[in-house]
């Protein structure tokens, strides 16, 4: 028989022994939690016992928590009356926090549109934390991606407008021409200070004169309008996310997403900033039920003094 056969033989180990050993896997991480729970249970039992006796312990009885007294006491301590044993509570799952400050330390694109940190990704796939809960922040991105797409389309339409192209062409020609006419503009403006309103007025007048030698007024007006539309679309694209209507839309969609995740069975809550947080199992993170409309970041929360790997 060889080593492989030996490992096969260990398959015959008694289920009770296997189940007992299985409980120790990840046990140290639950140890403090169990001790804390046990201490609370004992303290509660002592309080109940004292209340039942009218709150004043008799001299011949002792608290179950205190060591037995020996020596010169006149009254020998008798056996402690303890409350009847109750069924041990089902231990709560351990909550795991990230080692260190948490957050995205190593970007691991995964799970379709869901991105999670490398440390969290390792922890949920190592098979050792299936019974634990991970404290996470759930970032939802692209809440208003459809609005952005629409604005992008508008912007691109403006950029492709032939009148905008003509505007850019004529502006290039004028910038060359302007260098030849700089002195003339300075004389008309009565100043060389190019930021002054007088200088800008003279500049614009001379530009207009030049442009109208290259195209008629109707075309020039069309070009100016196309240029204005382009810059307006560009500005909207840059600042759309802070437009009140868009902000309200994003908030509304985040609320709906929170409700959807909750109804999908995830233990989620909103933090003081309205962000979505939760206590998720490894399986829930691996199979996160993200919507195809949005992107997600699942960020492992850091917690000073928390239980962490």
């Amino acid at each position: 028989m060889n080593g492989i056969d030996g490992l096969d033989i260990t398959n015959g180990i008694n289920e009770e022994f296997i189940a007992s050993a299985a409980k120790t896997r990840g046990a140290r991480r639950t140890l403090w939690y169990s001790l804390a729970a046990a201490a609370c249970a004992v303290a509660a039992a002592v309080a109940v016992t004292a209340a039942l006796r009218g709150g004043t312990p008799q001299p011949e009885t002792q608290s179950a928590l205190m060591p037995a007294q020996t020596g010169t006491s006149e009254t020998a301590p008798t056996a402690v009356q303890t409350a009847a044993p109750t069924e041990a509570p089902t231990p709560e799952p351990v909550i795991l926090y990230a080692p260190g400050a948490g957050g995205i330390q190593e970007f691991v694109p995964s799970h379709g549109g869901t991105n999670i940190d490398g440390a969290l990704n390792r922890a949920i796939n190592d098979g050792e934390h299936e019974d634990c809960l991970f404290a996470v922040d759930i970032g939802v991105t692209d809440l208003t991606a459809d609005v952005y797409e629409m604005l992008t389309e508008e912007f691109l339409k403006c950029a492709k407008d032939p009148y905008y192209k003509k505007y850019c062409d004529i502006e290039r020609k004028w910038s060359n021409e302007c260098r030849k006419r700089l002195q003339e503009i300075n004389e008309i403006a009565g100043t060389t200070e190019q930021s002054s309103p007088e200088w800008m007025e003279a500049y614009n007048r001379k530009r207009e004169e030049y442009v109208l030698t290259q195209m008629d007024r109707y075309e020039w007006n069309r070009c100016k309008a196309a240029n204005a539309a382009y810059h307006e679309a560009e500005a909207r694209l840059g600042s759309y996310s802070v437009e009140p209507k868009v902000v309200a839309l994003a908030a509304e969609r985040l609320d709906a997403e929170f409700e959807r995740l909750k109804s999908a069975g995830l233990n989620v809550y909103r933090n003081e900033k309205g962000g979505i947080c939760g206590y998720l199992t490894a399986e829930q993170i691996r199979n996160f039920p993200g919507s195809t409309d949005y992107g997600y970041y699942i960020i492992w929360q850091g917690h000073d003094g928390g239980i962490a790997e």
């Binding site: 030996g6 490992l7 260990t10 180990i13 050993a21 120790t24 896997r25 046990a27 140290r28």
Partner: peptide, 18 residues
């Protein structure tokens, strides 16, 4: 049992049992 049934590493066993 952890070593020869679950095939846990020595490190894992030590970590869990303190």
């Amino acid at each position: 049992v952890r070593r020869y049934f679950f095939l846990d590493s020595v490190r894992e066993i030590a970590g869990d049992l303190g």
